[in-house]
Amino acid sequence: MSHVTPAFVDLVRVETRLYGAVNTRLRAEQGLGLGQFEFLEIIDRVPDCRVLDLVAEVAITVGAVSKAVDRLVEAGWCRRVAHPGDRRSSLLRLTPEGEARLAAARPVVEAELAALTASVPPEDLTRLAATLAALRAELEAAQGS
């Protein structure tokens, strides 16, 4: 077994457990899932956000993202508006309800992540974040994302 395999296995298991715990708390306290939160956060953060921006950010298919956005629209948390320069595309905007949901959800996500990682020294988390950011950038560059 290579030295990378145990790190990969741990990374996947940690991500799964963190995601599950944050998702459970967020659903219980705010009535939305972590995936919905992530999409609302990206729509809020990315100027003139389109479905393709979400695809690039979360690395899932256009169809899956489009269906997820449809559910956000149905929930009243975002809307699609005509793209002024591209008739085939639309821009995504948070509704006031979506903005309120996102604002209420952010501290829940932050608090749960802080609680789950409290035993890890801050400098270790900083180093881990930098390492993961570098690896992500390298992988995205290799895939042309």
Rank of each mutant, 00 (worst) to 15 (best):
residue 9 V to Y: 03
residue 77 W to A: 10
residue 49 C to Y: 03
residue 1 M to F: 09
residue 81 V to K: 06
residue 107 P to G: 00
residue 43 I to D: 08
residue 134 A to E: 15
residue 85 G to L: 12
residue 117 T to A: 01
residue 123 E to K: 06
residue 42 I to G: 07
residue 103 A to Y: 03
residue 3 H to P: 09
residue 81 V to G: 06
residue 111 A to M: 01
residue 77 W to M: 14
residue 109 V to P: 03
residue 28 A to I: 03
residue 41 E to R: 12
residue 82 A to G: 13
residue 63 G to N: 15
residue 135 L to Q: 11
residue 28 A to N: 08
residue 123 E to S: 11
residue 63 G to L: 05
residue 111 A to Y: 02
residue 84 P to M: 13
residue 27 R to C: 09
residue 48 D to C: 08
residue 56 A to G: 12
residue 49 C to V: 11
residue 89 S to D: 07
residue 4 V to G: 05
residue 69 V to P: 06
residue 144 G to V: 02
residue 28 A to D: 14
residue 52 L to G: 10
residue 48 D to F: 13
residue 113 L to Q: 00
residue 43 I to H: 08
residue 50 R to L: 08
residue 25 R to C: 00
residue 13 R to N: 12
residue 101 R to S: 06
residue 92 L to Q: 06
residue 110 E to W: 00
residue 39 F to I: 07
residue 8 F to R: 09
residue 79 R to H: 02
residue 16 T to K: 15
residue 115 A to I: 02
residue 79 R to K: 14
residue 51 V to N: 11
residue 58 V to I: 15
residue 93 R to D: 06
residue 76 G to S: 07
residue 139 L to V: 15
residue 44 D to Y: 09
residue 92 L to P: 05
residue 6 P to K: 01
residue 29 E to D: 13
residue 131 T to K: 10
residue 85 G to Q: 14
residue 145 S to L: 15
residue 88 R to H: 14
residue 63 G to S: 11
residue 16 T to E: 14
residue 50 R to I: 03
residue 113 L to T: 03
residue 31 G to K: 00
residue 130 A to R: 14
residue 132 L to W: 06
residue 100 A to W: 00
residue 59 A to C: 07
residue 40 L to T: 04
residue 6 P to Q: 00
residue 95 T to L: 04
residue 111 A to Q: 09
residue 83 H to I: 04
residue 86 D to M: 01
residue 94 L to Y: 04
residue 131 T to P: 04
residue 20 G to S: 07
residue 6 P to C: 06
residue 14 V to Y: 07
residue 37 F to P: 04
residue 61 T to E: 07
residue 128 L to M: 11
residue 111 A to I: 01
residue 102 L to I: 05
residue 33 G to N: 12
residue 47 P to Y: 04
residue 86 D to N: 14
residue 90 S to T: 13
residue 60 I to Y: 08
residue 108 V to N: 05
residue 104 A to L: 05
residue 140 E to P: 05
residue 112 E to G: 03
residue 77 W to S: 07
residue 143 Q to K: 08
residue 93 R to T: 08
residue 1 M to H: 12
residue 59 A to Q: 14
residue 113 L to S: 02
residue 29 E to I: 03
residue 52 L to F: 11
residue 102 L to A: 01
residue 101 R to T: 10
residue 24 T to N: 12
residue 119 S to M: 06
residue 58 V to M: 13
residue 92 L to D: 03
residue 135 L to F: 08
residue 127 R to A: 15
residue 82 A to L: 13
residue 112 E to D: 02
residue 143 Q to W: 06
residue 61 T to S: 15
residue 121 P to Y: 00
residue 122 P to Y: 07
residue 50 R to W: 07
residue 16 T to M: 13
residue 112 E to L: 09
residue 15 E to N: 03
residue 79 R to N: 05
residue 4 V to I: 11
residue 71 R to F: 09
residue 145 S to H: 11
residue 34 L to P: 00
residue 115 A to C: 00
residue 32 L to R: 09
residue 141 A to R: 15
residue 76 G to V: 06
residue 28 A to S: 12
residue 138 E to L: 11
residue 67 K to F: 12
residue 134 A to L: 14
residue 8 F to V: 13
residue 15 E to C: 02
residue 48 D to E: 13
residue 135 L to K: 09
residue 11 L to S: 15
residue 119 S to V: 11
residue 110 E to N: 06
residue 40 L to R: 00
residue 23 N to S: 12
residue 83 H to A: 08
residue 74 E to D: 15
residue 14 V to L: 10
residue 82 A to V: 13
residue 126 T to K: 09
residue 121 P to S: 04
residue 7 A to I: 09
residue 36 Q to K: 02
residue 139 L to H: 10
residue 59 A to V: 15
